[in-house]
């Protein structure tokens, strides 16, 4: 195969602007994008910087944007992604580039993973002979344990392009892994921390992460698992964002009471009187358009008492 690789080149220390450079490559059928990069480094420019290690899709080291979509270079076949004989290779988005295709993984991943305190905080001292965990107890976290920190879920994340501080699905998957570890005894404290701004409540649950994860970990569902656990343990927000807990409580209270959502009440109870000044013009605009649901004037749905009973049973169980 004769192709053109368009490769992102940038050396921030040289003060030049980033640019896509074109390189001709000649590859056998079945070659990967990593093969192409290695050839460019051998034949055209020994200074091309990129990361790769295992070359087999096991280590998650070579995450790049290939033809505008996040992929591992070592398992992405050129023939499958080339468009009109071209392959574009760039670093992942929204990240500081150190040189060419090498970006600051510390900023993308490690600092965020450190924020979730990815170490066990056991409830009891380690027993003699170590912990013995029945297989079934480890089953729910086994998939998450296979995460190799490729960062593809963060690359596809809907929030990070708007807010680089967001902890992101990779770190939250790690958080899931420790919160649900049967040896860990700090779920409540952890969930409080994860509930603060930049944590799990900042996730828009758009399911992009599920689509991007090559390990089938379904990070969005793991974030839902964390949130559900937080609700179960009564830690529905951090300290800096109490409106998140008020939102949950108001939502649940109105569905519990009438079977469906009282949106007017939800707005009022979530924001309280503190933002009344700000909310009033919006409310006025909505009122004029006949859009404002009047809080608390909310008819019960037929059969609402059965919905209430569902809430009661779940609460009793937890």
């Amino acid at each position: 195969m004769e192709l053109i690789f368009k490769v992102y080149r940038h050396d921030p220390t040289a003060g030049t602007k980033p640019a896509l450079e074109s390189y001709p490559v000649s590859l056998p059928d079945g070659a990967t994008v990593l093969d192409g990069l290695l050839q460019i480094r051998d034949r055209h420019d020994g200074g091309l910087a990129f990361r790769a290690a295992c070359g087999r899709g096991f280590c998650g080291e070579c995450t790049l944007r290939i033809n505008r979509s996040g992929k591992l270079a070592c398992i992405t076949r050129v023939a499958q992604v080339a468009k009109d004989g071209e392959v574009t290779v760039e670093p992942v988005r929204n990240i500081t580039v150190l040189k060419d295709l090498v970006y600051d993984v510390d900023e993308l991943l490690w600092q965020k993973i450190a924020w979730v305190e990815p170490w066990l905080r056991p409830a009891t001292a380690q027993p003699d002979g170590g912990y013995v965990i029945p297989d079934a107890e480890l089953e729910p976290i086994r998939k998450a344990m296979s995460c190799y920190y490729c960062g593809l879920c963060d690359e596809g994340c809907s929030v990070i392009p708007f807010d680089r501080r967001f902890s992101g699905p990779a770190a939250l998957t790690k958080a899931f892994r420790v919160v649900f570890d049967p040896r860990d005894g700090a779920a409540r404290e952890r969930l409080k921390r994860l509930g603060e701004p930049r944590g799990m409540w900042d996730c828009v649950h758009c399911y992009e992460a599920n689509e991007h994860c090559p390990r089938g970990i379904d990070p969005t569902d793991r974030i839902f698992d964390l949130r559900d656990k937080a609700v179960e343990l009564g830690v529905k927000s951090g300290t800096a964002n109490p409106q998140v807990a008020r939102h949950y409580d108001s939502f649940a209270a109105s569905v519990r009471q009438s079977g469906w959502l009282d949106e007017g009440r939800l707005a009022l109870e979530t924001w309280g009187l503190g933002r009344l000044g700000e909310l009033l013009p919006m409310a006025w605009r909505a009122l004029r358009r006949g859009k404002l649901p009047v809080p608390y004037l909310h008819r019960k749905r037929p059969g609402a008492e059965w919905i209430r009973r569902i809430f009661d049973k779940v609460e009793k169980r937890s």
Binding site: H205, F224, R227, D228, V231, E232, H247, Y248, F251, A252, V255, G259, W260, L261, R301, P302, G303, A304, I307, I310, F311, K313, V314, R317, S318
Partner: peptide, 20 residues
Amino acid sequence: LTDVGCNGAGVLSRAVSDPI
């Protein structure tokens, strides 16, 4: 269906919304 509940909208925990 007039006598059914809010599905939870991804807000309510699945422990409640799955039965609803």
